[in-house]
Amino acid sequence: MSQSPESPPPNPGPAPAPAGPGAATSARPPARNPGTALDLAGVQATRVNAAAVASRITALAAARPVAAAVRPAWLMRAIACTDLTTLAGDDTPGRVRRLCAKARLPLSPEAQTALGAHRPLTTAAVCVYHGLVETAVRALDGTGIAVAAVSTGFPAGLSPLPLRIEEIRASVAAGAREIDVVITRAHALTDNWSALYDEIAAFRDACGDAHMKVILATGELGSPTRVARAALVAMMAGADFVKTSTGMEKVNATLPAALVMMRAIRDYHARTGARVGFKPAGGIGSADEALAYLVLLREELGPEWMTPARFRFGASRLLGDIERHLDLTLTGRHASPDHFALG
């Protein structure tokens, strides 16, 4: 994408985190994205060529096969970067406790040992509706696994703004360390970028210390250029993560949308030094798909982004497929699905 060279550079953010390619990420919480003023000229000058995006995705699929020998390491990293999610109308405390148990032990201890995991593997977070935050917080107490709450009138985001802001506050008070907010798509669809900026900035304000993931609902934005612009506005307004989808749109996470958002993150990093995270969500169900996203991440943003601090999968089915895939690696056989613990 391009940004107008004439537009003034936005307020510089903090100095870039010290991680370089391949470097270990720090154990302390990563610096947050402080946001910048809205650089409207920069947003409007951003253009994305859809056909070129598609051709990059196609080319990369052939260019970066993940060798069988290193695939377990990649897939375990995918697990570590997963927001294990349940967002159904029939969710109950029991269901959520079960999911949290899976988050604590996504692979059997035997499999983890056999695959050479460096430490007990967990998912990055469990993602639920507000009403189940407290249940999840209790179930995950002492694990370091974050509870994420979808918020702001998820998934459509059309409830009154004060209610949406109040919803964030309530989830934070209930113990959610991460808040996944949805944007008013109409702002993006009508190029009302200042309204979008103000809305997201207000969300960020309500989040306090909780990290904010901004869901763009890319499947409803209509063009990659609009996706890129919305991602930039979200980052300027202080998003810690930009996220593709709620999982409820007709089209959810796609590699082209991911590419466009990653490039927006890269440009924002180049201008401010802030490393914003990326979360593809919705419809990612197989180990192979997960690898494709991780390859794209490595190529477009670099290995320093391949960490839960900067990358998440929002998924419910994915973990099961990765588990089966890793088991196949270990045993050379396809196991019965009942061999694996339910989430």
Binding site: P29, A80, G144, A146
Partner: peptide, 14 residues
Amino acid sequence: MTDTHSETAPDYAP
């Protein structure tokens, strides 16, 4: 969001 995964990012192999 505490970063508990400090291993080097997985890499490609030939």
